[in-house]
C-alpha cells in the first residue's frame, strides 16, 4: 500500500534558524548521586549557543514500555563550546526521565532548542547570590560559571534533602563561589534558617542580584529579602509543556504586574522571570 512506503526526509528544515531539532549523540550518562544523573551529549553549533537559564525540549525515544508522546523540558546544565558538548543534570521522575536514564553512550537523542529566555548577568555587578533547591541547581549552575568568567563573585546556597544528595559543589568551588549547603536532616534548610543565612551572607559580601530555582518557599523568602534590600532578582520556573515554543498555552503561570494578575508562558516569556512578579 502506498502509505506504508517510507518517505525520505531530505534535510533538516531548521538549519540556520535560532531553534533547531538537534540530533545529539550521548557521550556519557551516569549517576552523580542517589537521586541525580548527568548526561553529556555531543552537540552541533546551534545547540552550543544555549545561554544559562535556557532549556532544551527533549524527545524521549520509544521503548518497550511505550512512547512518551510529549517532549520533556530540561535546563542546559553545561555547555562546553570547545568540546562541542552540552549536559543535562536530571532527576528520574516518571516515564520520560526513565527513558533518559536508560540511554547508553552512542545513543542518539533529539533535543529541540535552545528555548526560552535565560538569566540576566551584568558584568558591572560585583557579586550575585544563587539559592537553589534540589534539581533547581541544575538550572543555576551555568549562571555561576558565566558569572565567574565575567569576574562577578558568586555566593551559592544549596538546599538538599540529605547531605549526600548535594551536587556541583566542586564545579561551584572551581568558579570561586562561596558555597553553603543546607539540608533537611539537621533543619538547616528550614526557611527561617535559610533566611538568616542569606541575610548574614549578604551582610558579609554585599551582592547586586539574587537568583533562585526549585522551591516556591525559597522564592517567597528571597522576594522578601530582595525587596527589603532593593536587590534585583530573577527566578527560573517550571511548568508542564507541550510545544515549548509559545504555541499551545499549556505552560502558563500567574504573575502580578501592578495590581493585575497576568498569565505568562514559561516556555516563552520565561522560564526565567522577574523575582518580584512571580507568584509562588
Amino acid at each position: 500500500m502506498l502509505h506504508q512506503e517510507p518517505l525520505p526526509s531530505t534535510h533538516d528544515a531548521s538549519i540556520g534558524r535560532r531553534v533547531g531539532e538537534h540530533l545529539c549523540v550521548v557521550r556519557s550518562n551516569s549517576a552523580v548521586n542517589a537521586d541525580y544523573r548527568l548526561m553529556r551529549l555531543s552537540a552541533p553549533a546551534g545547540a552550543l549557543a544555549a545561554e544559562p537559564g535556557q532549556f532544551f525540549h527533549i524527545l524521549c525515544p520509544a521503548t518497550a514500555d511505550g512512547t512518551p508522546f510529549l517532549r520533556r523540558p530540561m535546563s542546559v546544565y553545561h555547555v562546553d563550546v570547545a568540546g562541542e558538548a552540552i549536559g543535562f543534570l536530571y532527576k528520574v521522575h516518571g516515564a520520560g526521565t526513565r527513558v533518559l536514564d536508560a540511554l547508553q553512550p552512542g545513543a542518539t537523542l533529539d533535543v529541540l532548542g535552545p528555548l526560552g529566555r535565560g538569566f540576566t548577568l551584568d558584568a558591572a555587578w560585583r557579586r550575585i547570590v544563587l539559592v537553589g533547591r534540589g534539581v533547581g541547581l541544575a538550572t543555576l549552575a551555568p549562571l555561576a560559571v558565566r558569572a565567574a568568567a565575567a569576574g562577578v563573585g558568586v555566593t551559592a546556597v544549596l538546599s538538599v534533602r540529605r547531605p549526600d544528595l548535594v551536587m556541583s559543589v566542586d564545579l561551584l568551588s572551581r568558579c570561586g563561589a562561596d558555597v553553603h549547603v543546607v539540608h533537611d536532616a539537621d533543619g538547616s534548610s528550614d526557611v527561617a534558617a535559610v533566611g538568616r543565612l542569606i541575610t548574614q551572607l549578604l551582610d558579609q559580601h554585599p551582592a547586586d542580584a539574587v537568583f533562585t530555582c526549585g522551591s516556591s518557599r525559597l522564592l517567597t523568602l528571597l522576594q522578601g529579602i530582595a525587596k527589603a534590600r532593593g536587590l534585583y532578582g530573577e527566578v527560573a520556573l517550571e511548568q508542564q509543556m507541550a510545544c515549548g515554543l509559545s504555541m499551545c498555552f499549556c505552560c502558563v503561570r500567574a504573575f502580578k504586574v501592578g495590581d493585575e494578575v497576568e498569565h505568562r508562558r514559561v516556555c516563552w516569556e520565561g522560564p526565567v522571570f522577574d523575582l518580584q512578579e512571580a507568584l509562588p
Binding site: 518517505l7 531530505t10 531548521s14 531553534v19 524527545l59 510545544c243 515549548g244 499551545c248
Partner: peptide, 14 residues
C-alpha cells in the same frame, strides 16, 4: 508540530 516543529516543511519536501 509539538513533537517535531519542522513537520510541515518535511511533509512538503516529502
Amino acid at each position: 508540530t509539538f513533537r517535531h516543529p519542522t513537520t510541515m516543511i518535511r511533509i512538503l519536501d516529502d
